[in-house]
């Protein structure tokens, strides 16, 4: 997903303490590669390999080097740099910006920013923001909760009781992330992060009650801004085809990422919140390396095969 310099400016100006020094009217320049480059090597005149599609960061190294150059040479090198059609420049440590850079920026329509941050910190922070801006994102149907560090998505047909189950879990002290509509982002590590739409965030719709505001009723401990997804639970009307042992766990693909998935049959009188809670605990146990179903099966197989020898 291609973004413009303005996207970064809108999202990151405050967090990165950025101010525009030149080229404010050229913020709509594209940022083809959402990464940063230290142009030190380019300033020495080496352009054979130069990441010109990236945001260029001028730190202490670049400034010290520029200072060592004679005036004419300095202008020549900077000119060469700007001729590469760079998307933008960030000057860190609040350095005074040389006149040459300001002039060239106007001439080549390149926005120039300044930040008081130290280069390394800026690069770290900016990477996080850029990743967030460019990560693939989708809106999916389902209620998202967080139970003891396990991010869980409850899915199922309308009216099957997703919100009611979520409500019971909130009453037990777990946290709501989103009701019914969940925004999902895939991180570069291949994890899925869920959060709620800004407008309806922390509201729930309960049949017969209408719309409720969860933190007003249950306190701020009952909500969570976002969570990484660990488990998907599908609530279904009973089919008789449910998994009975859990030896062959199911997964579901969301945005290309495989997520463990359980299908729970809903019968009247069955305490779904209780079962979902145990599902989260069991998932936690699995992540710690204990798979109860598999361990019992292995134990039985060992016993059975020993029995074969004994019985001839």
């Amino acid at each position: 997903m291609a973004i413009t310099v303005k996207t970064l400016w809108d999202e990151g100006a405050e967090k990165l303490s950025l101010s525009v020094i030149a080229g404010e009217q050229h913020l709509d320049r594209k940022l083809p590669e959402t990464a940063m480059n230290r142009p030190g090597l380019a300033l020495t005149g080496f352009f054979q390999y130069f990441a010109n599609q990236r945001l260029q960061i001028f730190g202490l190294a670049e400034f010290t080097y520029l200072k060592s150059l004679k005036e004419g040479e300095k202008l020549k090198r900077l000119k060469e740099l700007f001729e590469q059609q760079i998307p933008g420049i960030v000057i860190t440590r609040n350095r005074k910006i040389p006149e040459e850079i300001l002039k060239l920026a106007e001439q080549h329509k390149v926005p120039v920013f300044r930040t008081p941050m130290v280069t390394m910190n800026f690069v770290n922070e900016c990477t996080v923001i850029l990743e967030k801006l460019t990560a693939p994102q989708e809106r999916i149907q389902g209620t998202c909760l967080e139970l003891m560090g396990i991010g869980m998505l409850l899915r199922g047909d309308p009216g099957i009781g997703k919100s009611e189950t979520a409500l019971s879990l909130i009453e037990r002290g777990y946290s709501l992330v989103s009701d019914d509509v969940t925004e999902v982002r895939r991180t570069s590590r291949g994890r899925l992060v869920c959060w709620a739409n800004e407008v309806t965030r922390y509201h729930m719709e309960i049949r017969g009650l209408g719309i409720i505001h969860v933190p007003s009723l249950f306190g701020v401990a009952a909500i969570r801004r976002q969570t990484e997804l660990d488990l998907v639970i599908d609530l279904k009307t009973p089919s008789g085809n449910e998994d009975r042992t859990g030896v062959d766990p199911d997964t579901v693909k969301i945005m290309g990422v495989e997520v463990p998935c359980l299908t729970l049959p809903v019968r009247s009188g069955r305490d779904m919140a209780n079962i979902v809670e145990v599902a989260a605990l069991n998932q936690k146990l699995k992540e710690l390396g204990h798979d109860a179903a598999k361990e019992l099966d292995d134990k039985i197989i060992t016993r059975l095969t020993k029995g074969r020898v004994r019985n001839g």
């Binding site: 008789g240 009975r244 030896v247 099966d297």
Partner: peptide, 18 residues
């Protein structure tokens, strides 16, 4: 090969349960 372990048990239960 392994006798009635979890997977065959689940199949039997599913079959009988119908």
């Amino acid at each position: 090969e392994y006798g009635i372990h979890a997977r065959p048990a689940a199949l039997l239960v599913k079959a009988a349960g119908q």
